[in-house]
C-alpha cells in the first residue's frame, strides 16, 4: 500500500465520526440513471470517456431508485412527468440528494408555459442548481463537487 510504505506503520488514526461518514458518502455517491431531455445527453458525455465521472466515485449509474443516492434531474420536467419524478424521489433511500441540472430543471428555462414545471424545486427539494442550457460536463462536475462540499459540512445531529 502506498500510504503505509510512505508513513510506516500507521497504527490507529483518530478522526471524527462525522468526517468519516461524510467522506465515505461523497466518495461513493451513486447517481440514478435517469435522463429527461437534452441535459441527459450531456450527463452521458460526463459519464463517458472524455470526462469520466467515475473519478468522483460515481462509477455506477443505478437505474433503480432503491440503489441510488443522488438524483440528477437532467432536463425539463413536464406536468405529466412531475408525479413520476416525485415517486422516484420517494423511493430513494436516505440519505439522498438532488442536483437540478440545467435551466429548465432549475427555473423553467426558456419554456415558460403550460406544460413545464417552473423549477423542479416545486416537486423535490434541491441541493445544488446548475445553470446552463445545457450545462457543459465541466459544469456538472463542478456541481457535483459543490454538492460534495455541502455533504462534508453536514452535522451528526442533523441525521439523527
Amino acid at each position: 500500500m502506498g500510504l503505509t510504505s510512505k508513513l510506516g506503520e500507521l497504527g490507529i488514526v483518530t478522526v471524527k465520526l462525522e468526517d468519516t461518514v461524510n467522506w465515505a458518502r461523497t466518495r461513493a455517491m451513486w447517481p440514478m440513471l435517469f435522463g429527461l431531455a437534452c441535459c441527459a445527453i450531456e450527463m452521458m458525455s460526463t459519464q463517458a470517456s472524455v470526462y469520466d465521472v467515475s473519478r468522483f466515485g460515481m462509477e455506477l449509474m443505478r437505474p433503480s431508485p432503491r440503489q441510488s443516492d443522488l438524483m440528477i434531474v437532467a432536463g425539463r420536467v413536464t406536468r405529466k412527468m412531475a408525479p413520476v419524478l416525485r415517486q422516484l424521489y420517494d423511493q430513494m433511500p436516505d440519505p439522498k440528494w438532488v442536483l437540478s441540472m440545467g435551466d429548465c430543471a432549475s427555473c423553467g428555462g426558456v419554456f415558460n408555459n403550460y406544460a413545464i414545471v417552473q423549477g423542479v424545486d416545486e416537486i423535490v427539494p434541491v441541493d445544488v442548481y446548475i445553470a446552463g442550457c445545457p450545462p457543459r460536463p465541466e459544469q456538472l462536475i463542478h456541481g457535483i463537487m459543490t454538492l460534495h462540499e455541502r455533504v462534508k459540512q453536514e452535522r451528526l445531529e442533523d441525521w439523527v
Partner: peptide, 11 residues
C-alpha cells in the same frame, strides 16, 4: 408518450 411534452409549438 407525452412525458416530455414541452409546449414548444404553443410557445
Amino acid at each position: 408518450v407525452g412525458y416530455l411534452h414541452t409546449g414548444i409549438e404553443k410557445n
